[in-house]
Design a protein around this nucleic acid. Structure first.
Lengths: 247, 247
DNA sequence: CGGCGTTAATTGTATATACAATAACGGTTC
DNA sequence: GAACCGTTATTGTATATACAATTAACGCCG
């Protein structure tokens, strides 16, 4: 296909960085989808009029950053959406529950297209008249409630969500696998369950619950905001990571 | 000085990785301390009998990984210990409290050299007869308790800790700035304060508390284990991160 | 048709070389 | 001594080239 037209240098900064940006752009914009082949170094070399070492450095760094995967003799390919970080993975119940050998079920409670209130509009970084998709649902492991998910999706950033019912697959699960993001913010706190929360979670009133609030960004635009509540001490979040990665 | 003797290749894998390992070793072993000068590329080139591109790649990647810092015309230097990740930074109260403009105080409650029980020995990955340093203390912001720190330090990994009182500076703060690590594990949960915890934290019994347990590793050896308890909903942990870093 | 060796496409690493950018250093002048 | 300026050490990037490693694809042969 005519990839030559889409791969353009922007003329600012070192050449290998320009090449990186040129290749990242169609990936970010979903013009190139996961699994798509990236032209081999030899072709890029001719296209960009650069030496192979320079092309190689660009692609190698993109591979390190997770944008592409590379295999000898095979080629370079667009990688799957950003690998779920430990903590993100852990809060996708649809993934973690079955991996523990438990039966997983999701139940949607409600789904509406609404205008956010003032506070939510601020959190989502949108105007109070821009519509959002609000979904509430519960996640079960072997019949026991393990998470209450309250979800707001910015329809400006993810228009596709307006057409989805989220009755079978949770917003969390769908978003993790379908929507690219560049940054995530987590806030974790402990709260006491009030009467309403206790009944929604099936735990005694006053029980200590873990509240995880997450905002997901795509280039400074807030894609979605979620409040994930875990009942009692039935749940723990564990993540393991190496230093140096976030410097 | 005679760095030639300490920088040795191990003969396994690509040359640039061997060179990286050769340079990382004295850093890890604190033979080279933060701020120490690393021989310039030109010298390493002669020492390793490699081309400058290869030396450059090794040093460049070490800089990306945070082991060294580099400046044109100036040279390469051993970097400070691994930069605290967002969440690590946030739970070092000695750093975060003043940055919020609040008055910070640390109070040591106890310090002992003990043999860990069975459960703790397991968590620390040591035998039940190896001694550990156990420290309990509290962190205050403007006179209010914000964190209870229970700390166990593996003296096999950090013998220096046996000589420190930890009466003025918290184990957390000292460890963050003095002990290198390669991996960290966090477990976060919500608990209800029992009577003892409530009195230690100065919160009502039954209040929801955030419990952060952290294990810090150096090459699969557990350096330290901590239980950091935050009273009530007075505290939240927020971290913001980019994807791709932890793949 | 199935197994097997050969070929070739593609990425991985290494070298030698060149020039550019940065900033410390040394000397000159005022 | 202070301001200026050229020199130089060091890292940053770019190129051309070479060979190695991997493995898909092909063709050969039984």
């Amino acid at each position: 296909m005519n990839w030559q037209a889409t791969l353009q240098l922007d003329g600012s900064g070192p050449l290998y960085e320009q090449i990186k940006r040129a290749i990242v752009r169609p990936i970010r914009e979903s013009l190139w989808k996961p699994g798509d082949r990236i032209p081999p170094e030899h072709d890029l070399l001719r296209h960009f009029q650069a030496s192979r070492m320079t092309i190689n450095r660009a692609l190698r760094e993109l591979a390190e950053e997770g944008y592409v995967t590379r295999h000898r003799r095979v080629g370079s390919f667009v990688a799957s959406p950003p690998a779920p970080t430990a903590i993100l993975d852990i809060v996708d119940m649809a993934t973690i529950i079955p991996s523990r050998g438990q039966h997983y079920r999701y139940e949607r409670i409600s789904r509406d297209i609404v205008k956010p209130g003032h506070e939510l509009a601020t959190r989502l970084g949108i105007g109070p008249d821009e519509e959002v998709c609000r979904v509430v649902g519960r996640h079960f492991a072997d019949g026991e409630i393990v998470e209450l998910e309250e979800r707001w999706i910015n329809l400006t950033a993810v228009p596709e969500a307006a057409t989805l019912p989220f009755d079978d697959v949770s917003p969390n699960h769908w978003l993790v696998s379908h929507v690219p993001w560049t940054e995530a913010e987590h806030t974790i706190s402990a709260i006491s369950a009030d009467a309403g929360l206790a009944s929604a979670l099936g735990c005694p009133a006053g029980a200590a619950c873990l509240l995880l609030e997450r905002r997901t960004f795509l280039d400074d635009q807030v894609v979605t905001f979620a409040r994930l509540t875990h009942p009692g001490s039935r749940h723990r979040l564990t993540e393991r990571f190496k230093p140096g990665s976030s410097r």
